[in-house]
Design a protein around this nucleic acid. Structure first.
Length: 402
DNA sequence: TCTGGGGTCCTAGGACCC
DNA sequence: TCTGGGGTCCTAGGACCC
């Protein structure tokens, strides 16, 4: 989907079309603020000047999505808001409306599945589609089917998407970016040398900032540069698995199937604080946040029907270093009190002397709740008893080691 | 005024077992 | 002057993706 989160906002505020907008960070309710100020007026009638601007933003958020006009200023996904504000102070900032985004996500995926049932979920705004068995899926190299999908999504949601059609997922993903927004691009196997090799290495899905930097140190800048190396040389420099994969990727080889079903591996909740907190000085505040994270991850598990056996914590220090600790229990659980207790023990194994900027709680080794025989069956209707938790951690001595 | 939140997968060492 | 060879599970960290 093209600039998905921002495009969803433009459905509600069409008067902002063509303006630089960034989505992210926000904690305040813009709709509420605006409808108070403009009581009785439709949201689409509120003048653009009334919207909050990036230059007035305060906080630690990053940009989730920027509209194409905002991208002209060098603003993009994952950039800190404060940095973006320097590049484009006049951009409008809107918080993410997750409910609305999820609703449109479900809609566009359902539209696709009606047309081509073999679909792999790749997050909220992206899918892989297998055209192989779809009647007419090969016409004009897939362009006819791609156009049908595009139009059907547009009719159902008012949103545009970009589609890449290729012999495999790796190339299709790259192709999908050739004609953004609202584009279709077909890449045939014989196009790899002309269309793929000139691209920077970072365009390969699986080569991130670290590998890019290492490739640059080795004087490799384009995908063609990688393809020109022997597999042995790549294995020597990047390891057996990654080096061999990189060689295949550079030659456009990828035999991964489109996977239509998958089970979650873990569920987690984490939060970055408005200001860095200290385990001792801010212990009550941290304790409350910690309990809340445990409660929310437990709610997520129950709502989705899962239990887990590995309980873990994550924290990020003021210097941005990250530490994780986890512990595997004998029994599966989705009980907030059990999670809180195990996570509390994990917390005692980590250095709490430094200021923290983030705290997270994770439950892994998941299984479907209905597939696990419940030994000490907790009543199905039992509500999380939050009151029973005491913020007993984050106190002096909690950071003892050894 | 740096740098979100939710995930997956991989690696590597140690424990433990046969 | 020797000290196996696999396999699985657990844990911590890191790369990467949307």
């Amino acid at each position: 989907m093209d600039a998905f989160f921002a495009s969803v906002e433009l459905l509600r505020y069409p008067q902002l079309k063509g303006l630089p907008i960034v989505i992210g960070g926000g904690r305040r309710d813009v709709d509420e603020m605006l409808s108070e100020r403009f009581a009785g007026r439709a949201l689409s009638q509120i003048p653009p000047e009334a919207f909050p601007l990036l230059k007035d933003y305060v906080g630690r958020g990053v940009i989730t999505t920027a509209t194409y006009p905002a991208r002209q200023f060098g603003v993009g996904s994952a950039m800190g808001m404060m940095k973006a504000a320097k590049l484009c102070p006049q951009a409008i900032v809107l918080p993410v409306d997750f409910d609305e985004v999820r609703r449109h996500s479900r809609t566009f995926k359902a539209v696709i599945r009606e047309i081509a049932p073999v679909v792999e979920d790749r997050g909220i705004d992206e899918v892989y589609i297998d055209f192989t068995e779809v009647p007419g899926g090969q016409r004009e190299g897939g362009r006819v089917l791609a156009r049908l999908i595009q139009k059907s999504i547009q009719d159902a949601t008012g949103l545009t998407c970009s589609i890449g059609v290729a012999p495999n997922k790796l190339i299709a993903k790259m192709a999908s970016e050739f004609n953004k927004p609202n584009g279709i691009s077909i890449v045939y196997p014989e196009d790899v040398q002309t269309k793929i090799w000139p691209l920077p290495v970072r365009k390969i899905n699986g080569i991130g900032p670290k590998s890019e930097a290492k490739l640059h140190r080795l004087h490799l800048h384009t995908i063609g540069d990688i393809a020109a190396q022997s597999q042995d040389w790549l294995v020597d420099n990047f390891g057996q698995a990654y080096g061999a994969w990189m060689h295949d990727a550079a030659w456009g080889r990828d035999d991964r199937p489109v996977v239509t079903e998958s089970e979650p591996v873990s569920m987690s909740r984490e939060t970055t604080f408005d200001r860095d907190l200290h385990a001792v000085r801010d212990r009550a505040e941290l304790g409350a946040i910690f309990t809340d994270l445990c409660t929310r991850v437990a709610e997520d598990l129950r709502r989705k029907g899962y239990v887990g056996r590995t309980i873990g914590i994550k924290l990020r220090y003021d210097d941005f270093r990250t530490a994780t600790r986890d512990q595997t229990l004998d029994d599966y659980t989705a009980d907030p009190a059990v999670i809180r207790r195990a996570a509390g023990l994990c917390l005692k194994r980590v250095d709490l002397g430094r200021r923290l900027r983030l705290l997270g709680v994770r439950v892994g080794k998941l299984a479907r709740a209905d597939a696990i025989p419940q030994t000490a069956a907790p009543a199905a209707a039992e509500a999380p008893r939050v009151a029973e938790f005491t913020p007993d951690l984050f106190q002096p001595g909690a950071q003892e080691t050894g």
